[in-house]
């Protein structure tokens, strides 16, 4: 009994330490700014532009990530194929790659002949599409991982039963697996959105940090810091914290609580 209490106390201390660290970070951020700076920051046209671009680009990269992640996660979860291990490893590359390196790779990719061909139709580098592409490159890897775990947790037996009842494999996917994966999709979308919101390294290299053009909220923090305006940087950071928390709360309100996914 005494041992159990000691064990639980040890666990609670470790958890408490980490929770305390997060709380301290938020308090520190909040203490370095004031409502005046917050209002000033939010009324600046540059920061309003960055806020809008962040919201739009994160939403677009999330939608693109889900579009890829749902079929990719299903394929990886349900089927074995030659080269699957290699594909699996490649999918982790955007997660483990240093962000600046990813940005550099994207920059170089669009200097190759196929990249230049795309640029002639849609300007990407140092333009808004590069922001979405940089965010998507990382967010999608997280979404694919989440969707794979989601489909791993859904027994394939239900789809097999559906196939004996007259469904093709595609119908079994759409009618059975897809609706059952709804919560996983919401988690994948939340992760992708939050990850996109915080993306900075690849955007700095691939999109630049041009005000009123490719500036997203992390860029704003960087630009304000670089001119020594720490109060404004902290104010914008707080806006990002609030935006991320709103997304997390919305995801929980839609029923992710208790699923172990979020």
């Amino acid at each position: 009994m005494h041992c159990d209490r000691l064990f639980l106390a040890g666990l609670a201390t470790l958890l408490g330490t980490y929770v305390l660290l997060i709380a301290a970070l938020l308090v520190a951020l909040g203490s370095f700014t004031s409502p005046v700076y917050l209002v000033r920051a939010l009324s600046s046209p540059e920061i309003q532009y960055a806020f809008r671009l962040s919201l739009i680009s994160c939403t677009l990269s999330t939608l693109l990530s889900l579009w890829i992640a749902v079929p990719a996660g299903y394929l990886l979860s349900r089927f074995g194929f030659r080269g699957k291990n290699l594909v699996d490893t490649l999918l982790d590359v955007p997660i483990v790659l240093p962000p600046l390196v990813l940005g550099l790779a994207l920059l170089i990719l669009f200097q190759t002949p196929p990249g230049r061909a795309i640029e002639r139709v849609v300007p990407v580098t140092f333009a808004v599409p590069s922001v979405v592409l940089a965010q998507f490159s990382v967010a999608c890897a997280f979404a694919v991982r989440t969707m794979r775990v989601t489909f791993d947790q859904i027994s394939p037996r239900s789809e097999e039963v559906a196939m004996t009842l007259g469904c093709s494999r595609a119908q079994a996917f759409w009618m059975i697996a897809f609706p059952e994966a709804r919560r996983g999709m919401l988690t994948a979308a939340t992760l992708a959105w939050a990850r996109s919101l915080g993306e900075f390294g690849p955007i700095l290299v691939f999109s630049g940090a041009t005000r009123m053009r490719t500036e997203v909220l992390p860029t704003t923090v960087f630009l304000e810091l670089s001119i020594g305006n720490i109060e404004a940087a902290a104010a914008v950071s707080l806006v990002m914290v609030v935006a991320a928390m709103v997304v997390l709360l919305l995801a929980r309100a839609f029923g992710l609580r208790g699923t172990g996914l979020i």
Partner: peptide, 28 residues
Amino acid sequence: RPAARGIGYVPQDGSLFSQLSVRQHLAF
């Protein structure tokens, strides 16, 4: 393919479809 065999299959754990009502199961 399974759909063309004209069989009814009852798996061990039932494997009901969690999103569908009993009525929708019978109608599936």
